[in-house]
């Protein structure tokens, strides 16, 4: 039976791994992303997501180099995202060791790219990242690193992403990002019940119980970033917690 996944997220800005709070990236946590992987007590983590959150497109080559370095010693699935705007760069990221591409803004500005990537590389290798934010009591999908409101309802956006070729959803809430109060469970549940592809929950994990909440709400994988960097042996502890909760995860 398919296991629920525990995913480590590395937010990379330039060369550094940074902390993310409501999509603002200030604190550098690690000065070398490959080193951060070592710190993750990697044998408990089931997958790694690496996101280039830099504001400039010129970081693309440096990011691809980072992926190459990480993959040299990391025998785990790796999904990567940020500044994926054409097929050549996508091919390069796969070549350097990525297993899946994560696209966010492209689903808004360039749906044709998403469709052609899905047809070229298969829907299983395309993950749609969906960021939501609540404004005037309405939760909608935001793109371009949380700067543009699409006005779309999250579950409608998720369905649209799947139609365009996404084989997985990576769900994050800007309000919950770094806020330490757990995932946005209401929207997570809404998305999980509206699409048939796997859904990764992200944004807001502080206690391990936040992870099990995400799984119980329907997530196929639970992801965390900041919290992994600040607690010793954190990945292993998180995994142990999920096993003790009786959840179907890969044993360590």
């Amino acid at each position: 039976m398919l296991k629920k996944r525990l995913i480590a997220v590395l937010i990379v800005n330039g060369k550094y791994v940074v902390q993310s709070v409501k999509f603002k990236h200030t604190n550098a946590i690690h000065y070398d992303a490959a080193e951060a992987i070592e710190c993750f007590n990697k044998w408990s983590i089931d997958e790694i997501i690496i996101l280039n959150v830099s504001r400039t497109e010129e970081t693309r080559m440096e990011f691809s180099k980072t992926i190459e370095n990480i993959c040299k010693k990391c025998f785990l699935p790796v999904a990567v995202g940020g500044w994926i705007t054409d097929i050549n760069y996508s091919r390069e990221l796969f070549y350097k060791g990525a297993d899946k591409l994560i696209l966010n803004t492209a689903f808004h500005t360039n749906p044709a790219l998403c469709e052609s990537l899905a047809s070229k590389f298969g829907t299983q290798s395309i993950t749609a990242s969906i960021d939501v934010k609540k404004e005037n009591k309405r939760t909608t999908v935001w793109v371009n690193r949380g700067r543009i409101n699409t006005e779309y309802h999250p579950s409608d956006w998720a369905k649209r992403a799947v139609e365009l070729g996404a084989g997985e959803i990576f769900f994050n809430s800007i309000d919950h990002d770094g806020a330490r109060k757990g995932y946005n469970l209401v929207t997570l549940n809404d998305i999980c019940s509206s699409v048939n592809v796997p859904v990764i929950a992200f944004g807001g994990v502080f206690n391990w119980s936040h992870l099990s909440e995400g799984i119980r709400e329907g997530a196929d994988a639970v992801a965390l970033a900041n919290q992994l960097h600040y607690t010793e042996h954190s990945a292993r502890r998180a995994k142990k917690f999920l096993i003790n909760e009786g959840l179907n995860v890969r044993s360590i």
Binding site: M1, L2, K3, K4, R5, D46, E47, G122, T123, Q124, G167, E168, N196, V197, P198, V199, D220, A221, R250
Partner: peptide, 15 residues
Amino acid sequence: PKTSNIKLPHIGWNE
């Protein structure tokens, strides 16, 4: 094939 209670594509760790 799509059967009840599974998500497709098949992504993740399995026995």
